[in-house]
């Protein structure tokens, strides 16, 4: 506290970061900034690389590992190392008219949707309003300058459309669950590999994250005032209880699922590049990377 600081009646000091708290309140925001920074950094690099997101059989048969950062593959570049086979791309190869300035990466076409879901998430809003926006940096710690705060009334009014990002997240959950099932097949043969487990955990954590979403919880039952008006518990009441279970753990699931998505991409990438060996029941020949 400097001599020029304003002290209010009550002994509270005015100024960014001012507080009488002696504890390390800044550890939480610092960890948040570090973790989100690493996640954004890794995600951006992985997206821009545009390669090594697929592990499958040489024959391009049914099944394989697909990185969640690249799923679904809308368009693909066959010349990229470790690219998914053509049959996986919903709309085939990148067309000739595709702007050369934009990265020719399947991830670039889809990451906006999960990104929007996380960005508008009620939990992450707390995390980054505190850590990046200093609004406030900690509880009972003074934050952004007085008079400048507008909450979610103007610039951040778009946060009210979180439920639309959630609708897309549900679609992605279905796709990633399909990917997890596909990871138990290689060239049509049923089996299991470490990658199958990694992809299944990933799909499960992301589904748990969606189930705990506040908008999801509201829409499946929370908006009703009367769960049991006629004396019988309604389906929406049961659904709300289901959502509440995950909602109470939303913060933990948010962080773990984010970390696991990155790890899943890293795992597929490393196996695709031949750096890591995927222990599985299909044998070495069935895990050759396409285009390596």
């Amino acid at each position: 506290m400097s001599s020029s600081d304003t002290v209010l009646p009550g002994g509270h000091v005015v100024g960014l970061g001012e507080t009488r708290r002696p504890d390390k309140w800044w550890v939480g925001p610092l960890l948040t900034v570090s973790f989100i920074g690493v996640a954004i950094g890794y995600g951006t690099i992985a997206m821009l690389m545009g390669n090594h997101y697929w592990v499958g059989a040489e024959g391009h048969g049914f099944g394989g590992y697909l990185s969640p950062l690249y799923s679904p593959v809308l368009m693909f570049d066959a010349s990229a190392a470790g690219a998914a086979p053509a049959s996986h791309a919903w709309f085939g190869a990148f067309p000739e008219w595709y702007p050369s300035l934009l990265p020719k990466s399947p991830a670039f076409l889809i990451l906006l949707f999960p990104g929007a879901f996380r960005f508008t998430c009620y939990y992450y809003r707390k995390a980054y309003y505190r850590s990046f926006g200093f609004a406030p940096p900690g509880c009972a710690v003074e934050g952004v300058r007085r008079g400048k705060y507008e909450g979610e009334t103007k610039l951040f009014l778009f946060q009210n459309l979180h439920r639309y990002a959630m609708y897309f997240a549900v679609i992605f959950n279905i796709i990633l669950t399909y990917d997890a099932v596909m990871s138990f097949f290689r060239d049509g043969a049923l089996g299991i590999g470490v990658g199958s487990v990694v992809l299944t955990i990933n799909a499960t954590l992301l589904a748990f994250y969606t189930f705990g979403c506040h908008s999801f919880r509201h829409l499946i039952g929370g908006r009703a005032n009367c769960f049991t008006c006629d004396g019988k518990e309604t389906l929406s009441s049961k659904a709300w209880s289901f959502g509440t279970f995950f909602n109470q753990r939303h913060m933990q699931i948010a962080w773990v699922s984010l970390a696991w998505v990155m790890f899943t991409d890293l795992y597929v990438r490393m196996v695709s590049m031949g750096i890591w060996t995927d222990f599985n029941t299909w044998g070495e020949a069935a895990t050759k990377t396409v285009g390596l």
């Binding site: 009620y122 809003r125 707390k126 309003y129 505190r130 609004a135 406030p136 509880c139 009972a140 909450g151 979610e152 009334t153 951040f156 009014l157 506040h214 909602n247 109470q248 939303h250």
Partner: peptide, 21 residues
């Protein structure tokens, strides 16, 4: 709209009311 759900209210509530969620 002014609330940016930073959850400090929930953290300090002595009755442990989940004010935010």
């Amino acid at each position: 709209g002014w609330c940016n759900i930073t959850r400090c209210c929930t953290e300090v509530c002595p009755e442990h009311i989940n004010i935010t969620d």
